[in-house]
Design a protein around this nucleic acid. Structure first.
Ligand code: MN
Ligand code: MN
Ligand code: ZN
Ligand code: ZN
Lengths: 128, 128
DNA sequence: GGCTTATTGATAACGATTATCAGTAACATT
DNA sequence: AATGTTACTGATAATCGTTATCAATAAGCC
């Protein structure tokens, strides 16, 4: 993996983000530093950085992927009103025992766990 | 919602499925009964039936949606080798208390929870 | 500096899903 | 049973997020 200014800016952009931005948002933010950076380059580097474990890609149902500086295993809440994604800290004892069950009793190899809760945040109130 | 042969066949196809088929697979199976049924009609009815609670749509990261006759809340394992999706029965005490936390302490309204574990099933062994 | 090749920006291609639309059929009303 | 209304159909185009392609560029090694 070659070190480029684009890659450095993309990574530092994600590391500086306190939300869970998507590729396009990251591209816009990176353009504050490198106005000519292309969306393709952003996607390419995000994929590479995620594969390298420097950041995390989060799949959200019916929505584009988000990116997270927190690479620890944790759940997310996705607001169907405003689209924001927030962390949900679960003490997954149950999850851990489930993982154990899958790996030991079923011979399954786990590589990734996705937990997304969806609904409406307090700002977006229930009724519209 | 109007009752049509297409809708009935699509629903009974899903109800008769013991796996977690995607729209195209459901379309192929439905064509055994109605050879002329179109994929668009399958998508349209699956969306309608899911909205009506008669079946469940499952989002799988980096893959097309699957459909499930089991509308109860449950987790899934997705094999990255053969693509199959199998049920994972979690006793989500932790999940329930998390839902309570989100709704009561954060004022969040929950409508949908997605739990997908990915990796390799025993048939697909770890090393290819 | 010169060489190799990973990376870039621009653009095309992709796959899953949804939208569009004229023709058809479900079903309520006569 | 004939009619009228309109949800639904099949065919097709369009959408959206993402990946692939490719000539030009630049990172990093000698
Ligand atoms: Mn997070
Ligand atoms: Mn299931
Ligand atoms: Zn919101
Ligand atoms: Zn498998």
């Amino acid at each position: 993996m070659r070190k480029t200014v684009q890659k450095q800016v993309i990574l530092s952009t994600v590391l500086a983000s306190c939300d869970h931005p998507d590729a396009e948002t990251i591209c816009e933010r990176a353009r504050a530093v490198i106005p000519s950076i292309s969306l393709g380059t952003v996607y390419r580097n995000l994929a590479q950085l995620a594969a390298d474990g420097k950041l995390k890609r989060i799949s959200i149902p019916d929505s584009g992927d988000r990116f997270d500086k927190n690479v620890e295993e944790h759940a997310h809440f996705h607001c169907l009103g405003c689209g924001k994604v927030i962390d949900v800290n679960l003490n997954f004892e149950q999850m851990d025992s489930c993982k154990e069950f899958l790996t030991e009793k079923m011979g399954v190899t786990l590589t990734k766990i996705t937990v997304v809760m969806q609904g409406y945040c307090s700002d977006c109130a229930k009724g519209e």
